[in-house]
Design a protein around this nucleic acid. Sequence first.
DNA 1: CTGTCAAGAACGAGCGTTCGTTTTAAACTG
DNA 2: CAGTTTAAAACGAACGCTCGTTCTTGACAG
Lengths: 195, 195
Amino acid sequence: MPRVSESHLNARREQILAAARICFLRNGLHSTSMQDLIKEAGLSVGAVYRYFKSKDEIINAISETVAGGLVILLHEIADDESLSLMDALTKVIELIDRQVAPDGAFPMAMQVWAEALIDPKIGEIVRNRYVEMRVPFRKLTERALARGELKPGADPDAVSATLFGIIPGYALQRQLVGFPDKDAYLAGLSALMTH
Amino acid sequence: MPRVSESHLNARREQILAAARICFLRNGLHSTSMQDLIKEAGLSVGAVYRYFKSKDEIINAISETVAGGLVILLHEIADDESLSLMDALTKVIELIDRQVAPDGAFPMAMQVWAEALIDPKIGEIVRNRYVEMRVPFRKLTERALARGELKPGADPDAVSATLFGIIPGYALQRQLVGFPDKDAYLAGLSALMTH
DNA sequence: CTGTCAAGAACGAGCGTTCGTTTTAAACTG
DNA sequence: CAGTTTAAAACGAACGCTCGTTCTTGACAG
């Protein structure tokens, strides 16, 4: 199929990335062979190598996109001024809970994090994503401070970092051991914050 | 060296595991070849395969031991009744901070976690370790409740799970992006808990 | 025709592991 | 306490296989 439309090219690219995600979740980044991935995509070797010039490039592309949707959703929560701090955190936990599933972002994210410690390029991608993700928590913190929902004079940077920690704090436990569920975690959080 | 002492055998085993840890931290679990690991240990192929019958067995052995030291140290903190809840949490964060370094347990733990999602055997090891690690947090929670340092009537399971979340909440940020440092995180934690 | 895209056979490198051989220190012997 | 035996421990060449990638070939829309 020569001189094909641009949307076709993008679709092919996405088809390869979708297959890669499936394989990476099933077998991990490095135990997935190009042949696995190619078979999953239903394409030929040559086709895949037309769109990505190496396996590393595929891993990079996936690392770039793994947290993209999450950032947007976090902003939506942070921008809803009708929510109290605790209500917003509840929505955050509910959001994270949805990511802790084979079709959520979290299992893939864990693969990427492990890789980030090994491959500096992935490390930088992860750092950049983190910076983006902290913004909504900063917003949340500032509003809570202004409303007197937090101890007056508290350092917004420190508090938002600690609030951000709720994400890995909950998700890692939930993903790796199944416990606690979101209601228990929220109950614990509420107990800590309201004494 | 035939009919060699048991301590010699253990030393050899540990020598191999130490080399494996170095390699796994440098290149990851699956990008480390047996030959890398064997070279790092300064042994021959045959020697290594006398002590471990496969690469998987080495990865399993390392997964088993990655959190061992940490559990003991957490218990020491939890057993010190002279500490207030916040003081104990401060010591926990200081402990975790020491694990976020090439010679600490955390970078290896992250590799193991990623593997836990792929390999059910590793998954079970991680789950078992988690159960052990939650015990000191449960102790901490119960004492804090008895002392009135927490909201009366709060569910101890829920609170201890949330407190446990401090570990990944802090460590993951610190490991992957460098920020926040322990003082900032503790300041944020304190601000959340003392309003 | 022409230029783009897809196909898949082929390639060298490196993988995890096996196994026949050599080395070595403890155990046995007188 | 020396000489000999013995079997555990260590060695490393070799194996079959799979890896990521390249490249030649053919198909087809413009």
